[in-house]
Amino acid sequence: MTGSPPDVMLPRPSVSVDAVMAAQRAAEFTKRSIKKDAKVAGLLMALSMLDLTTLEGKDSVEKVRGLCRKAVRPWDRDEAVLGYRLPSVAAVCVYPALVGTCVEALGPDRRVKIASVATGFPSGQFPLEVRLDDTRRAVADGADEIDMVINRGAFLAGRHDEVADEIREVKRACRREDGSFAHLKVILETGELETLDQVRRASDLAIRAMADVDFETGIPAPGTPDFIKTSTGKVQPAATMPVTLVMLEAIREWHAATGRVVGMKPAGGIRTAKQALHYLVMVNEALGPVRVDGFDGCPWLTPDYFRFGASTLCNDILRQLAWLKSGRYQAGYDFSEA
């Protein structure tokens, strides 16, 4: 082990959350008026932050190839209709068995990252060795990012140390032979955590556990750009605005205490362009004023530290962009499915 132990500890237990105020503050973010140029800019930002996702039992090689094409160029008629080339999305998110297909489809100099769910997604109810092996294989196959699920059973039973140990183990399994790390996203599955207090506790725990591995490897601030993520998308409710707000607050306080930067990924249930704008408003108002050494603007308003996990959101953003440009409401069949 190298590096020095952390000199700042978060207070334990985590601060408690006022659920009523969290809901009210989250609701306020939905009342900003964003029109015309600002709306287009917001939609393009949301598009560039997408983790274009397919996580179904019926996923096939051909479907994932189609998803990769869409990730690189979300709409092939962009120049004809909009007059400009759309940005690529941030990443594709697939099951581990399909990582190789993505590597092949996106090519060696890919701008679109490959994220793979791992650790026995979506339940995580597998022996630790199987989960770690799942992770190592996905990294070896070429995944840039690993979306892991925490052991909710252990967390809810109060075995927090066990959960933290497992996150540390998974993060160590994300280390490649050359010493670099695949970026880790820890899925809290907030729909199963019952209360916002638990969400905050799990956020603090996950952030801390991921940073522990940075400390032992000697990675200085801002640290590996790891994420905390709301949901698998397989449990309802998935991402909600109050839950995301609580997680953003945990990220903000961790940065204030340590100077380290952790990313945020709400996933599941964000289907419309309007919802995506609401989330961006929330990020801007919760974290926008935070200044980080080495970054020009707010790091959380870039795809490096903020992502949307979604599948249908992409086409709704495209639909809105086309409507704003043409004044014609668009049909579903105007946009490719994958």
Partner: peptide, 8 residues
């Protein structure tokens, strides 16, 4: 007019 141009 919006009915006329609505693609869906």
């Amino acid at each position: 007019p919006f009915v006329a141009t609505h693609r869906d």
